[in-house]
Nucleic acid binder design. Structure first.
Length: 579
RNA sequence: CGGGGCGUAGCGCAGUCUGGCAGCGCGCCACGUUCGGGACGUGGAGGUCCUGGGUUCAAAUCCCAGCGCCCCGACCA
């Protein structure tokens, strides 16, 4: 490819609407442009990288025994109604009516569609196991798209689905996909961490997220460097706090005036008590029943854990009027003391709290010296909070780290959630009808690009690994019109192409500075610079983007040297791939 | 949906407080000189100042309404 023949609009300055490094660099390097919030055009260079990432995914999926197919993005909503996810997914699914008045949707994911397909085609245990996948644009009407292509409303997902006769066999299929994911992310050069996660709306019992720790992303994970424990903060369990220090003569409850102090922050600074000495009381509506959730002031509710603990499917914070109805007092002054007729669920950390501060269920008043057990009873104790940096590792007790991450893949053991509802069964050896046991596996293909840039860049720009770079080599003749320089650059370029190396020729009539800056910004792994001065000494300059050091190479050797470097770069990925 | 910020040439921004000729840098076009880390000179093109309404002799600037984008939160497969 010649630069002058393609379209690589690089920018000197950061776009004003980007905050995340990957977003800024993708726009500056001429990889993407935004059309509207959450929808991006992939320019030629960006699209080329995307296809390279797709191909790695495709190769590993095929190697793991999965078969590629392509389902329509356009889907009837009936199937979603059958599984009950029509309601669950709500406005995230983009829906509209076709000309016949039929309600259709743009697929946010394809469990319903593939299960419906398979239900009509799979009859016998002899057809199983089976794993199918596709790489396709998905549509989700996100509440808040952000970080460029990290969370967009239209994005590219590899979604795979496995079908098995029983859970033992499903575990094998799951493991194959899990291992394939590790190989894919290895080959992409991504520092991924698989963590235990919450299956959420997808259903099933167990799921794993593949996370890339970065400065951005919407997920946080808890990591233990001593034992290797890793889990999404959605599920990471919190160790119970120690026993309450036995006070000789516990002081009695005391009322204090707290005019206008309705937040934990207000109350703690007003009363000069640390947030961790406060008990906050959140009123939730769980499956239409009000529940009081008690947490330490400095802790955050983990709604997934609360749901599990209560065994409910819906959980929503009560609004102002709901709080008043339940507690008799205004929002911001709720407390567990004398709060009757409502179920109270408390985090384990509450148990050992001495002389806590709580709301009184009356306006502008709080209570001091409240002791759990003595001053109020709790219906249910549980681990219902989000893990914090102050917590210890739930496995080994050492310190843990909380890291913001990009979720790049997610694997689920679905079980029979979809197959039962959609009638996807098979006949076993005994002629008995049984539901298919399913798993599903997603990779955000565009997130591979964003994650790579987040984890691999410097102040000059992107540093691509050989496997995902838009081109493996850029050839830069320093001066347009200088015959010897141009002739030599052309020779090297055509030799590289002949040798199957993915090279680009910067044939623009631009100053050397511009060419260097652009090459660094885009981040081609290898730069071959042909200049008059070194050419007079029969030398060509060779730079590896990751190291940044220039080397002078005899011009007779340059093609071989580049070939070696490219091969080595490609080999690295293969070696990692087969560990 | 709540909080904050932004919207002026292709891109990045100043001008808005205090109303009075539409500006700067980069990029772009032409010519010339240049050519090893974002060259220089000369000349030039390019505007719905987000949209609509209002106030005023006069609005990018003040007022009202709306739209779009970004960040934080809520939400999330």
């Amino acid at each position: 490819m010649r630069w002058s023949n393609t379209f690589i609009p690089t920018l000197r300055e950061d776009p004003q609407d980007a905050e995340a490094v990957s977003h800024k660099l993708m726009v500056r390097a001429g990889l993407i442009r935004r059309l509207t919030a959450g929808a991006y055009t992939y320019l030629p260079l960006g699209y080329k990288i995307l296809r390279k990432a797709e191909n790695i995914v495709r190769e590993e999926m095929n190697a793991a025994g999965a078969s590629e197919l392509l389902m329509p993005a356009l889907q009837p909503v009936e199937l979603w109604k059958k599984t009950g996810r029509y309601e669950d997914i709500g406005d995230v699914m983009i829906k509209f009516q076709d000309r016949h008045g039929k309600e259709v949707a743009l697929g946010p994911t394809h469990e319903e569609i593939i299960t419906d397909l398979v239900s009509g085609e799979i009859r016998s245990y002899k057809d199983l196991p089976l794993t199918l996948y596709q790489i396709q644009n998905k549509f989700r009407d996100e509440v808040r798209p952000r970080f460029g292509i990290v969370r967009s409303c239209e994005f590219i997902m590899k979604d795979a689905y496995s079908f098995d006769v029983d859970t033992v066999s499903m575990e094998k299929s799951y493991r194959k996909m899990y291992d394939a994911y590790c190989r894919i992310f290895d080959r992409c050069g991504l520092p991924y961490i698989p963590v235990e996660a919450d299956p959420g709306l997808m259903g099933g019992t167990v799921s794993h997220e593949f996370m890339i720790p970065t400065g951005i992303g919407e997920d946080t994970i808890a990591l233990c460097s001593s034992c290797g424990y890793s889990a999404s903060t959605e599920v990471a369990s919190c160790a119970e706090e120690g026993d309450a220090p036995g006070l000789e003569e516990p002081p009695g409850i005391e009322e204090v005036a707290t005019p206008g102090m309705s937040s934990v922050e207000d109350v703690s600074s007003f009363l000069k008590r640390e947030a961790k000495n406060l008990i906050k009381t959140l009123i939730y509506i769980a499956d239409d029943e009000p529940v009081a959730v008690l947490l330490r002031g400095d802790h955050e509710a983990n709604e997934a854990k609360i749901k599990k603990c209560l065994g409910v499917s819906s959980l929503e914070l009560a609004d102002e009027s709901g709080v008043e109805k339940v507690t008799g007092g205004p929002m911001g002054f709720s407390g567990p003391v004398e709060l009757n007729g409502v179920k109270k669920i408390a985090d384990l950390s509450i148990r050992s709290m001495p002389a806590a501060v709580t709301g009184s269920n009356r306006k502008d008043t709080h209570l001091k010296n409240v002791f759990p057990g003595r001053d109020f009873e709790v219906n249910e104790w549980g681990d219902i909070r989000v893990i914090t940096e102050d917590d210890k590792c739930p496995r080994c007790g050492e310190n843990i780290e909380i890291k913001q991450s990009i979720e790049i893949g997610h694997t689920f053991k679905l079980g029979t959630k979809y197959s039962e509802k959609l009638g996807a069964g098979f006949l076993d050896e005994n002629g008995k009808e049984r539901p298919l046991i399913m798993g599903c596996y997603g990779i955000g293909v565009n997130r591979i690009l964003a994650s790579l840039i987040e984890t691999s860049h410097d102040d000059k720009g992107i540093i691509w690994p050989m496997a995902i770079s838009p081109f493996e080599v850029i050839v830069i003749p320093l001066k347009k019109g200088e015959e010897a320089v141009e002739r030599e650059a052309e020779r090297i370029y055509s030799e590289l192409i002949k040798n199957g190396i993915d090279a680009i020729m910067d044939d623009r009539d631009k100053s050397p500075g511009v060419k260097f800056k652009d090459a660094d910004l885009i981040g081609f792994p290898i730069q071959v610079v042909v200049g008059k001065k070194s050419l007079e000494k029969n030398k060509i300059e060779l730079t590896e983007r990751s190291a940044g050091e220039k080397a002078l190479v005899e011009k007779e050797d340059i093609v071989e040297r580049v070939k070696d470097l490219v091969k080595k770069g490609r080999k690295d990925k293969e070696r990692r791939a087969h560990v």
